[in-house]
């Protein structure tokens, strides 16, 4: 995969969580022998992609497919089990926290629940000042104040409210404030994990507009995590579809919505309720999502796929780049059966 032309590139990124608990929980006794069993959640498996400067790459997929884990691993909040992360061509997953500092200011995160991510005991002023001062110790007080005011205006929160606390704001305003906090350090790259999922549609529209405006003005690059496919369709440049910790398909938003290839993507997109569409044709998937603790062999989706053959049950499909540039991991697509 390309490595240097992307703003951020991940290669074969894997993140597993060991949830075995203490040693005693792991031991079991059977057939006269004591054995030790580890339980590992395979949240993200061998994911590679590259995010281009100025684009919005959305990651979609159903609950538990590893979207948030991917987002956090990309930002270095979780150490990956294996794989590589590059920022502007520099490898960053091997850096110490001190070496990582200059990159931290360039990469910011916005969360779903602004209430949980804002410190309830900090006024808006302090919430916004803190990251600036942290990353730029020499900045003057006046400059900080000016910046707080500018950014608050940009996100549509009246600067005269700087001395208020998070609980004095509505959900939409709190999300504006967490966006403001991310913008305070002039980032290049923003990871937004379900930033509008908790908001009402009319407020959601305000926040999406705000994010699109900020992107245009500041040339931001977004990694946008969401399960809402209508939002994805509206704001993305490209879309990555994940299933059970694995990347199935990655394509431009237009190509994905017009001519998706992967059987899971087809089912997922067919299920989106579309305003005013009376007789929808949902592709019904058989079975249920397996647990990420016991991943199926072969193609991760084979147990639910209508195109499954023997090869799918044994061999993991690799991501292949189609002529259109779309990336798909599916044997049926490779074999020309789809």
């Amino acid at each position: 995969m390309e490595k240097n032309n992307g703003l951020l590139t991940i290669k074969n990124l894997t993140k597993h969580f060991d949830i075995s608990g203490g040693l005693l929980d792991q031991l079991s006794f059977s057939n006269g022998k004591i054995s030790r069993k580890r339980t590992v959640v395979k949240a993200v498996n061998d994911v590679s992609f590259s995010i281009q400067p100025g684009e919005t790459l959305s990651v979609v997929g159903e609950s538990g497919c590893g979207k948030s884990t991917l987002a956090r691993t990309v930002l270095g909040l979780y150490p990956p089990n294996s794989g590589e992360i590059y920022y502007r061509g520099d490898r960053i997953d091997t850096l110490s926290s001190k070496e990582m500092l200059p990159y931290r200011a360039k990469m910011q995160m916005i969360f779903q629940d602004p209430y949980a991510s804002l410190n309830p005991r900090m006024t808006v002023a302090r919430t916004l000042e803190e990251p600036v001062v942290f990353h730029n110790k020499s900045i003057s007080n006046d400059e900080v104040q000016k910046k707080v005011e500018d950014v608050m205006e940009q996100v549509g929160v009246d600067p005269k409210w700087v001395d208020r606390y998070p609980h004095e704001f509505s959900g939409g305003q709190r999300q504006r404030i967490s966006i403001a906090r991310a913008l305070m350090v002039d980032p290049e790259f923003v990871v937004a994990d379900e930033p509008v999922s908790a908001l009402d549609v009319s407020i959601q529209a305000q926040i999406l507009n705000l994010m699109m405006d900020a992107q245009e003005k500041r040339g931001l690059t977004y990694l946008f995590i969401t399960h809402d496919l209508s939002v994805v369709k509206h704001i993305s440049t490209r879309v990555a579809v994940m299933y059970l910790g694995t990347l199935c398909e990655l394509a431009t938003v237009r190509e994905l919505f017009d001519s998706r290839r992967h059987p899971y993507t087809k089912a997922l997109l067919s299920a989106i309720p579309i305003l005013g569409e009376r007789k929808p044709k949902h592709i019904k998937l058989k079975g249920e999502v397996p647990t990420p603790i016991n991943l199926p062999p072969g193609c991760i989706f084979h147990g639910r796929c209508e195109y499954v053959n023997d090869r799918c049950k044994e061999e993991k499909p690799k991501i292949r780049v189609l002529d259109s540039g779309a990336q798909v991991a599916c044997h049926a697509v490779e074999e020309g059966r789809i």
């Binding site: 009319s202 959601q204 529209a205 699109m212 369709k233 579309i274």
Partner: peptide
């Protein structure tokens, strides 16, 4: 108008 998907991709959404 606020619902994404009802409007042209990438354009500002109608907002109340």
């Amino acid at each position: 108008g606020s619902i994404p998907g009802t409007q042209e991709m990438g354009k500002r959404l109608t907002q109340i």
